[in-house]
Design a protein around this nucleic acid. Sequence first.
DNA 1: TTGTAAGCGTTATCAA
DNA 2: TTGATAACGCTTACAA
Lengths: 338, 338
Amino acid sequence: MAKVGIKDIARIANVSLATVSRTLRTPDLVQEATRQRVLDAVAESGYKPNRMGMNLRTQRTGNIMVIIPDITNPFNADLIRSIEETASNNGYAVLLGDTQSSPEREQQYVDLVEAGQADGMLYFSGRNPFNINPDKPLLEQLPTMVNSNEELDLDGIDKVLLDNAKAASEAVQYLLDLGHTRIAAVTGPMNTKSANGRLQGYRQALQQAGVEIDDKLIIEGDYHIDAGVEATEKLLRLKQRPTAIFCFNDDMAIGAINVLQANDYRIPEDISVIGFDDILYSTYVRPALTTVSQPVQEIGRLCTEKLIARLRGSHDEPTTTYVSHKLVVRDSTGPAPK
Amino acid sequence: MAKVGIKDIARIANVSLATVSRTLRTPDLVQEATRQRVLDAVAESGYKPNRMGMNLRTQRTGNIMVIIPDITNPFNADLIRSIEETASNNGYAVLLGDTQSSPEREQQYVDLVEAGQADGMLYFSGRNPFNINPDKPLLEQLPTMVNSNEELDLDGIDKVLLDNAKAASEAVQYLLDLGHTRIAAVTGPMNTKSANGRLQGYRQALQQAGVEIDDKLIIEGDYHIDAGVEATEKLLRLKQRPTAIFCFNDDMAIGAINVLQANDYRIPEDISVIGFDDILYSTYVRPALTTVSQPVQEIGRLCTEKLIARLRGSHDEPTTTYVSHKLVVRDSTGPAPK
DNA sequence: TTGTAAGCGTTATCAA
DNA sequence: TTGATAACGCTTACAA
């Protein structure tokens, strides 16, 4: 079957190319009878307008590029699902760029956007992938984009953010209120804004409570389960062990719980564990994980809506929207041991 | 900054459009000096060939559409990651179609492929989304595609499959060997091939062992955690409770474990639980989950490689590749209680 | 080795 | 209301 094109429809319906196109795009401009003839031909032949031709002519692809470090992290998977749903409801498809945090991969996907393979992008990384000419206006040099999760050091672009410092500080305050003073932190990669923000909140809360900060209790992780495992093993070897461990995401907290239980610690009686993100599995881990909840669904929706508004031509001043976190207390935290 | 195009480069380098294109696509055909002049102009101006023009002219987009029911299922997330990696290594980008098992969404994404927004697709659903004209050869009517996970009722297309019946039968046999006879099954949606195959294996193993099949012990799930929760609650209410529960995926097994523990059952002393997939979290659940492992990484790679081979023009006879499963015994299964 | 020009499949402008 | 035609940005056959 030779692929049927607009020319074939025009021939079958005995009209011009233009009329076929109009029937599909602006049916109101076509006479009822003509329109019906064209639609019949379309239905009969199964004609689908070729997107490459359409894209070139209209200068839009209907694609949104999502650039994100790791889709196997449940938080990111939830995020993408929300984005995909919002995009799909608005007639956009999602191009997925899983970068594994590699700058080269980030660059590669940004290039794709700049080459017009997508109309805009959601950028969940803090690394600046643009070659910016300081002599020219910034905005004209950037693709249409929204930044989230890891804040980008660029003004004048739309962002959706969480107050990481405040959220972390509340989590630590909650542990302090339970009587903990030796509180460990298993951070994310220290080249990310999220980890730095959360660490800052951790420090602030301790300082305000007059608790001395012990650098031995701060261990850099990478947001993967294994990092939680290794960090916790390290913490357990300390002469002065922590009574609580604040992991900067749930995956690492799950790793931490695992190590603690393998070494016969009771949670939370011996050691409390708290996570960040509130992924689905945090409810199903034993003990169920206390964690800082991020409104992942809302983040995905907001990002996508902001981007689509721009793609539809909005020239409003770019804004940063802060979404709100919530401490979800479950069973992995309790009073500090005597 | 007006977007710089091939014309601008041609003007700057003082060559024709064709030479610019050649420099970028087939540099060997261009004289050293000329080439350098063009490359300089490209570097200086930051020119990136417009993909829409390129796509239309070459009749390829470099996109692969992945149509999959639910990206938040860790098995699927792992799968997509593997696909994305393989695709990216071969110069393809991934268009993500998360369908939430909705036939309309499946159709919508298939339409996109047929309209040329992607060069081919990986189809992880068993529902046939094509309007096939029986008078014409099948293959000419289908987009370039590979089918996996849920087998499609179409001959003559490439597939990557697991022997679900055999895998399930082995899992049940393992439970039988442990002395269990009241073995429950929490299935996937019964309109999927995977659930039917696994159920068939379950039945076969029991029959071969001469164990009567009790339909009350077979409960339809949907591969989500909640379904595991509900099914298990139902099973616990039975007068004759099972001593083992075979969940057709890990998420449901995690739900099952949760309910059992909430009701003070010891796993595996009172009730054994076994899952399917071997997602990362199955290691970190307490007790660690015994499960049937699927080589998810390999599935993703094989699918993508098969598709790309086709896209590169292979006309080999379509094949079905079977990947091998493996029973991974952890701590959630043990001898049947006396 | 390079340039000219056709053409990929659409949409949109303009004229009829 | 419809048709003819140019144009979107690129690659490639053919000619020079």
